[in-house]
Each structure stands twice: as structure tokens, then as C-alpha cells.
């Protein structure tokens, strides 16, 4: 464990909790892509199946359980409890265009050709693009609530911090996971445009709105 990985995990946790609280307190999931949240629930489920096969640490197990629990709670709030506030018309990204190629890639490029390992690889690839329905929704409506931008910032920072973690682990532990690194780079690049808008607009007290 190093500081980048820990702050990355905490940033990820903060993102998940910010989103849950936003929906719960406002009793609304307006502006949130249910499709991205379903993808994240799939990501956690596919990746953390190793909860059943290997134990790493109490920290590792607890975080996994919390992430999975929160992901399903978020999907439940969007598609069941506050379904009436879900903006399905604007959440029109075709997720099959992500899931199918990513599934194929996971079968082709993985560390070991075994079911659990392919599912882990699938989750890594899928996570890197799972935010696209959310970013697509914002580009379609042209705006995002400030609390939603805080969620996106924390979520984007998490993988960015992991990149530093991988540099650290490469130098100090000789640890090197090409699949995670490449996917993490892709994931971080997808947030760059958003990071720019967050710093130039939201941090200066303005609402995030895109020019028409």
C-alpha cells in the first residue's frame, strides 16, 4: 500500500458516496446515467468474484464489499425507488457498443485464459469506458449539476492516482500489470476534457454548462 493507492481508493469511495447521497438527499436521480451505474455494478461484480477464492486483507475485502453494495444500491435508487425522476430519454448511449467489444477484447488479451481471469480482465476494460454513457448524457443536455461534477471529479481522480501508484510499484516493488496500466491510461484520458472544465468553471464557482 502506498499513498497514491490509498488516496485513489478513498477518492473512489468518496465518488460513490457523493452520488448515493446526492440521489438520496434530493430524492432524484436527474442528470445521472443509469446505464453507467449498471456498467459499474457489472464491473465490481466481475472483478470481485475473487472475494470467494482468495483473501488479501481486511481492508481489501471490506472495500470490495462496500463498493459492490453501494453500486447495487445506486442502481436500485435509479431504477426502482426514484425511477420517476430518471431521465431515460437523455440516457441514450448504446451500451452494447461498449460491452460486446470489451468482452471480445478480454477473451483475446488477458494474463491467463481462465474464467475468473477473463472476468477480471473484462472488468478492467469495461471500467475504463463505463463513464461514457454519463459523459454522453452531459454532452446531450449541455449541463451538469455541481454535485454531479464533484462525483465525476473524484471518480476520475481515482484512476489518475492509480497511475502514480503503478509508477511507484514499478520502481519500488518491480510490480507491473500491463492490462491495468493501459486501461487506466485510457480511463484517465477520457476524463481530461472534463477535468479541464471542472478546474476552469466549477472550481471558480460557475455551473458546468457547455456551449450550445
Amino acid at each position: 500500500m502506498n499513498i497514491f493507492r490509498l488516496t485513489g481508493d478513498l477518492s473512489h469511495l468518496a465518488a460513490i458516496i457523493i452520488l448515493l447521497l446526492k440521489i438520496w438527499k434530493s430524492r432524484s436521480c436527474a442528470g445521472i446515467s443509469g446505464k453507467s451505474q449498471i456498467l459499474f455494478a457489472i464491473v465490481f461484480t466481475a472483478r470481485y468474484l475473487d472475494l470467494l477464492t482468495s483473501f488479501i486483507s481486511v481492508y481489501n475485502t471490506s472495500m470490495k464489499v462496500i463498493y459492490i453494495g453501494c453500486a447495487y444500491a445506486t442502481v436500485y435508487l435509479i431504477y426502482a425507488k426514484f425511477r420517476a425522476t430518471y431521465d431515460g430519454n437523455h440516457d441514450s448511449f448504446r451500451v452494447e457498443f461498449l460491452v460486446v467489444p470489451v468482452g471480445g477484447l478480454a477473451v483475446l488479451i488477458n494474463h491467463t485464459f481462465s474464467p475468473l481471469e477473463i472476468l477480471w480482465t473484462f472488468s478492467i476494460y469495461l471500467e475504463s469506458v463505463a463513464i461514457l454513457p454519463q459523459l454522453f448524457m452531459i454532452s446531450k443536455t449541455g449541463e451538469a449539476e455541481t454535485i454531479t461534477t464533484h462525483y465525476l471529479f473524484c471518480l476520475g481522480m481515482y484512476r489518475t492516482l492509480y497511475l502514480f501508484n503503478w509508477v511507484w510499484r514499478f520502481y519500488f516493488e518491480g510490480f507491473f500489470d500491463m492490462i491495468a496500466i493501459v486501461a487506466g491510461l485510457v480511463q484517465t484520458v477520457l476524463y481530461c476534457d472534463f477535468f479541464y472544465l471542472y478546474v476552469t468553471k466549477v472550481l471558480k464557482g460557475k455551473k458546468l454548462s457547455l456551449p450550445a
Binding site: 493507492r5 481508493d9 473512489h12 472483478r47 475473487d50 477464492t53 482468495s54 488479501i56 481489501n60 472495500m63 470490495k64 463498493y67 494474463h111 491467463t112 481462465s114 475468473l116 481471469e117 477480471w120 492509480y162 501508484n165 491495468a180
Partner: peptide, 10 residues
């Protein structure tokens, strides 16, 4: 390691 890799990150 042989076989299944141990993924210790989240």
C-alpha cells in the same frame, strides 16, 4: 505466479 494471477488492488 503460475495459473491465476493474484490481483491485490481494488
Amino acid at each position: 505466479p503460475e495459473g491465476e494471477a493474484l490481483h491485490d488492488e481494488l
